[in-house]
Design a binder for these strands. Structure first.
Lengths: 187, 187
DNA sequence: ACGATATGAATGAATG
DNA sequence: CATTCATTCATATCGT
């Protein structure tokens, strides 16, 4: 999981050139000869440690804008970082955790068809909140995509104009929603 | 935002066979072996260009149902697209622009108590009638739902100067006021 | 050199 | 509108 985590590099501040990762193995050659100090944020070990702590120990999964600001301000002491980096970190971390679980459960659920829904522990706290099998056929919600443009036989007629009350028209037409059988886990 | 923009598969030649089949993507042959998932709209470069033009130059931010219809009709010439795609595009674009600001908030505001008298000289001014025949009728959604307020027909005057965040949203931080919340990250 | 994997970043689609 | 989710893209790094 965690591989590549060294290279602390530039704490903001100038240090022109450097190019960060330049070094790398193989000696020389590497470098992209152009500064271009890495395009993406490279978290330092401390930053990751703190982020993990917030995630696992504090139960923070989707920090609010305020939290993100505070967090990034704190992490900035350990290296360059922006709010978006924190935002993405949590987004990705959560998503991948869920994704991983989904894949794992996916297999097991194939073996155990009936999974009584029951009440899921709706707590936002437990990091293990995603219990149960999600399985969620993610492709089913989009199977109803009309040919919108051309080619699908139906031309541009889209009459979703019908004076909808106040919501998005295109949300009604088809029965999309989440998988009926699969239990959507709370968040 | 500027990356990954290949794979245009609009070809409307109604060619039989596979079509679509997601994935592809340059480089990685990843191959998902099945699931023609990529059902989601993949804007073409032209569509994006036009959308951005409407957003930044025309000042359109929350197009009405009629505008959406016209826009999607226009964009359809450049690739498959549906009304909802346009709707979501504007929603997301606007939301992200705002979010960027919110998370960006960095130091600049903390360091500069009060300065930069009047920036924002440059308004979106455009919108003086959306080019063409689009009438500026405020959408029912805005009026009835959410206290959108401004039903005057003029867009909210935010000052995105010419920056065109077209490239990377949060790449450019700019002054934004935000109270330095002191609350500890909690949940 | 590749291929696999981890992960930062981006964005379409939804939901509240 | 704000938030969240799912996917996908882009890279860096490591294993063989």
């Amino acid at each position: 999981m965690e591989h590549h985590q060294y290279q602390q590099q530039q704490h903001e501040e100038s240090n022109t050139s450097s190019t960060v990762v330049g070094g790398s193995v193989g000696g020389s050659k590497s470098s992209f000869l152009c500064r271009q100090s890495s395009t993406r944020w490279i978290p330092t070990a401390d930053q990751i440690r703190i982020l993990r702590d917030l995630y696992y120990n504090m139960g923070i999964r989707s920090p609010t804008a305020d939290q993100i600001q505070k967090i990034s301000a704190t992490l900035r002491k350990y290296g360059k970082i922006e709010g978006k980096n924190v935002f993405y970190w949590f987004q990705n971390h959560k998503a991948r955790e869920r994704q991983k679980k989904r894949l794992t459960v996916d297999i097991s659920s194939l073996l155990t068809p009936c999974s009584s829904p029951g009440l899921y522990g709706v707590g936002p706290m437990g990091s293990s909140c995603c219990g149960g099998s999600m399985l969620m056929e993610r492709s089913f919600r989009e199977c109803c995509l009309s040919g919108g443009g051309n080619g699908s036989g139906m031309e541009s007629s889209m009459g979703w104009v019908g004076l909808e009350s106040a919501a998005t028209p295109w949300m009604h037409p088809y029965p999309l929603k989440h998988e009926p059988g699969a239990l959507m886990v709370s968040r």
